[in-house]
């Protein structure tokens, strides 16, 4: 099982410039990986190409052995006609009941399950949205700013829990947070503007796990590498 993109060329219909000109990268191992890059560089487009929500590109996406690729993003909403708890119940397969309870707790949502989506704060909304994706069957989950507006402490414990709970899955975490990406991700694919070649650079992050402490020098080093690459 590995994910790779080879020579992706893509241009939005009607747009004058190409988003990707021969973009290639690969992520060889499951785990918590990142898609990083400045705004507007095409991270979301790339994510949608990977899961198949965008067609009409040339090149090849290889997701060997993966059948369920999901893409989630931070602006998603749950319908407001019932509580988020009921929504979660409805979309959780029986086999994942335990998962659900664990996630509700780690995500700090226990007290809010009786509320409707519109009554939650932005951070809570993003958490509940991410949770429902985690409760699906998937081999790859792309998290596009999925933890935006969540405070740093909760975010870190969520990421650590995800890594512990799903060690054999592929994650692609899209975020603008240098520290977070450097600290928690294993492979960091830096997407650069279309004029730069190659269009991506792959770096190695610290891939921090629970109960590990971070080496400050290494962290700074990684952050610098990312900054230079972008």
């Amino acid at each position: 099982m590995a994910l790779s993109c080879n020579h992706i060329f893509f241009q939005y219909p009607g747009a004058s410039t190409e988003v990707f000109q021969g973009l290639s990268f690969s992520v060889k191992q499951p785990g918590f990986n990142a898609l990083f890059g400045p705004s507007g560089v095409g991270k979301t487009s790339l994510a949608k190409i990977i899961v198949g929500e965008i067609t009409g590109y040339s090149g090849k996406v290889n997701a060997d052995g993966m059948t369920r690729l999901l893409y989630s993003y931070n602006l998603e909403r749950l319908p407001d006609w019932s509580s988020v708890g009921r929504h979660l119940d409805k979309i959780t397969p029986d086999s994942k009941e335990e998962h659900k309870e664990a996630l509700v707790e780690v995500f700090g949502m226990t007290d809010y399950m009786g509320l409707r989506f519109s009554q939650l704060s932005l951070g809570q909304q993003n958490r509940i949205n991410l949770m429902r994706y985690l409760l699906q069957d998937f081999e790859l989950l792309i998290m596009d700013e999925s933890l935006a507006n969540v405070d740093e402490m909760t975010r870190e414990s969520i990421i650590l829990k995800i890594k512990a709970m799903f060690p054999d899955r592929y994650f692609l975490y899209i975020s603008h947070n240098f520290v977070e990406v450097s600290k928690f991700c294993r492979e960091i694919v830096v997407v650069r503007g279309p004029l730069k070649q190659p269009q991506t650079l792959s770096l190695t992050g610290i891939d921090l796990k629970s109960h590990q402490s971070v080496d400050r020098d290494r962290l700074e080093q990684t952050m610098l590498e990312i900054m230079n690459a972008a």
Binding site: V51, E53, L70, Y71, S72, Y73, L75, E76, R77, L78, P79, D80, W81, I91, N129, R132, Y133, Q136
Partner: peptide, 23 residues
């Protein structure tokens, strides 16, 4: 932003689509 989840997880039925849009 509401329909995306149901679509990609294969849960979308026309009744649900109508319900979401009407609501």
């Amino acid at each position: 932003e509401i329909e995306h989840f149901y679509r990609v997880t294969g849960r979308m039925r026309w009744q649900l689509e109508v319900k979401i849009r009407a609501f």
